[in-house]
Amino acid sequence: MEIKQDDLSGKKIVELLMDHLNSMTSLSPPESVHALDLEGLKSPEVTFWSVWIKDELLGCGALKELDSSHGEIKSIKTAKIHLRKGVARKMLHHIVEEAKQRGYKRLFLETGSLDGFMPARNLYKSMGFQYCEAFSDYKEDPNSVFMKMELS
C-alpha cells in the first residue's frame, strides 16, 4: 500500500468521496453530517491523502489544522471492496505520524454515535483515541461522538 498526497482531481478519488458523503447522509440526519465536501477538503488548512496499490484506489483520509497545536482527522474512507484489509488503520497511523511531525499536541475527530459507526469508533479506540467533549466549532449532538489523542 502506498499513501500519496492527493490534489482531489482524479475521477476515482472523487467517486470514493461521493460514496463517503452518501454513506454519511444515509447513516445520520443532515444536521449531524460533518464530512467535508470536495471543496472543503481543498481548503488550505486540509492535507488530503489517498491509498493505492498500483492504479487501484483503496482509501483516503485527511488532516485539518485547527491551530498550530491541534489537528482534526477528516474523511477516512476505505473503498468497499477493500474493507477489513487494514487500509483505514494504515491511513490513521499515517495521519497520527504527520500530526506528530507537525508538532501537534492533540489530535481530534468527530464520528457518528449510531451502530453503523461502531467499526470506526473501535478502530479509533484501538489506536489510543479517547472520548472527549465537543471541540472547535462542534456542538454536542446525540448523533456524534468526539474523540482525542494526546500526542506529546
Rank of each mutant, 00 (worst) to 15 (best):
L57Y: 05
K74E: 09
S50Y: 00
K64P: 01
H94K: 14
A88Y: 00
L57G: 04
G10P: 00
L151F: 05
R121L: 02
I95T: 07
L36M: 12
M147C: 04
S113N: 13
L58W: 02
R102Y: 01
F48C: 12
D115N: 08
K77H: 06
G61I: 13
S75K: 04
P44K: 15
M149H: 08
V46W: 00
S68F: 07
C132D: 05
L27V: 05
T111E: 04
L38E: 15
V51C: 15
M147E: 10
Y104L: 11
A99P: 05
Y124S: 08
D141K: 03
E140F: 03
T25A: 14
S69R: 11
G103D: 09
D115H: 03
P142D: 08
V14E: 08
K42L: 14
L41V: 11
A120F: 00
D141H: 11
P30S: 12
D19S: 14
E72T: 04
P142Q: 13
L123Q: 08
I73Q: 04
H20K: 03
G86Q: 10
M1R: 02
Q130R: 15
L109V: 02
G71N: 10
V96T: 14
G116S: 03
V145M: 02
K54V: 10
D141I: 02
H34R: 13
A35H: 07
K100C: 10
C132G: 06
G103A: 06
S75N: 13
L83P: 00
I73S: 08
L16Q: 06
D19P: 01
L21I: 15
E133R: 09
L83H: 14
D19H: 07
